[in-house]
């Protein structure tokens, strides 16, 4: 007997799975490899969370973010963060209208569906803090008036971990507002050869213009609602809580994760299960999303940093200690 007949899905995820396959196909026209990054980006769209892409220059961070905006039929804007950028450059500002003799609000680039912030760590904390409200509450308050953002609202930010000169460390409050911090690594040898072949045949430019829209705003709303309905076993909720709780008790971590991290793991695990066409989550889904959810929310103790341990190593050790509920 077929497995699909044995356990008939309680939530119809067929359209979602089809859309996900189409997105991967479209992005795959330009991006070689980086499957995990693309999976996590799709999950973040479905889990209604913002993404921080971190990687060395030249690993297609900005290109991927642009491609994501291309496959979704939504408004897109881009801000290049610089040290002299002011909050009003991001949010917008009130301008005096000589004709009507009153101030009118001129909207900044933040008013969009998908906002790409390139090199987010180049702006000082003052400008970073302008993003707090919009990232958490999907609204902006300027001159006492509140402007609500249209759904979907997704911030995709990029940063370079190596270059430290002229950069600012993102405030903890802002880091906590990102659903994932995705580390974009170098491609492997085979992927590198494919990139070279694509470049040699000048396919990249043509295909970038041939990227089709595969997801509408309404579809995203519908898929998000479906993801929300997925079944979560109570033991797995305890498992998530134990992981996050353990980060607070770990002697290797100076700062543990917040309850927002627990919610982020739950929500993104559900989205990841939905992407695979499964209407319930399993420990595999939780482990897949736990590291990108936690790595920017915890801080190593100075002694572990001096020992040369990475946050990912400590998160792995912490998760491996916790028994999978069976």
């Amino acid at each position: 007997m077929e497995n699909d007949e044995l356990f008939k899905s309680r939530v119809d995820l067929s359209a979602l799975k089809q859309s996900v396959d189409s997105i991967k196909q479209e992005i795959g026209k330009v991006i070689v490899g980086q499957d995990k990054m693309i999976d996590l980006l799709i999950v973040s769209i479905l889990a209604d969370g913002h993404v921080l892409l971190e990687g060395v220059p030249g690993v297609a961070k900005t290109l991927t973010a642009k491609l994501i905006s291309k496959v979704i039929d939504a408004d897109f804007s881009r801000i290049q963060f610089t040290p002299d950028l002011m909050p009003s450059d991001v949010l917008g500002t009130s301008v005096f209208n000589l004709k009507s003799s009153e101030f009118t609000f001129k909207r900044g680039p933040i008013f969009s569906n998908i906002l790409l912030i390139d090199e987010i760590n180049r702006a000082p904390a003052k400008t970073q803090s302008a993003l707090f409200e919009v990232m958490e509450e999907r609204q902006v308050t300027v001159d006492g008036k509140t402007y609500t953002m249209d759904e979907p609202y997704l911030v995709v930010a990029t940063q370079n971990p190596i270059e430290q000169e002229g950069t600012y460390r993102l405030p903890e409050a802002q880091l906590d507002r990102f659903l994932f911090k995705i580390e974009v690594n170098y491609p492997n040898l085979d992927e590198e050869i494919l990139i070279l072949k694509g470049h040699h045949e000048r396919r990249k430019k043509e295909e970038l213009s041939r990227i089709d829209i595969v997801l509408t705003r309404d579809q995203i709303k519908d898929y998000r609602a479906k993801v929300h309905e997925l079944h979560v076993d109570e033991n797995l909720m305890q498992y998530i809580a134990k992981i996050v709780h353990e980060t607070r008790n770990s002697p290797n971590l100076y700062l543990g994760a917040s309850p927002r991290a627990s919610i982020a793991i739950l929500q993104s695990a559900k989205a990841f299960a939905g992407v695979q066409g499964r209407d319930f989550i399993n420990p595999e889904d939780i482990k897949f999303v736990a590291k990108p959810v936690l790595r920017h929310r915890v801080i190593l103790t100075p002694e572990k940093e001096m020992e040369g341990q990475s946050v990912d190593d400590i998160i792995d050790q912490t998760i491996e200690k916790i028994e999978i509920p069976r």
Binding site: K242, E303, M306, E307, K321, I322
Partner: peptide, 22 residues
């Protein structure tokens, strides 16, 4: 910096017991 100097010379297994019973 809260550095335990003993750890620099003697390896310590970090598979410690969790704070709660699992």
């Amino acid at each position: 910096f809260k550095v335990d100097i003993r750890k620099a010379f003697f390896s310590t297994s970090d598979s410690g017991v969790l704070a709660h019973e699992i």
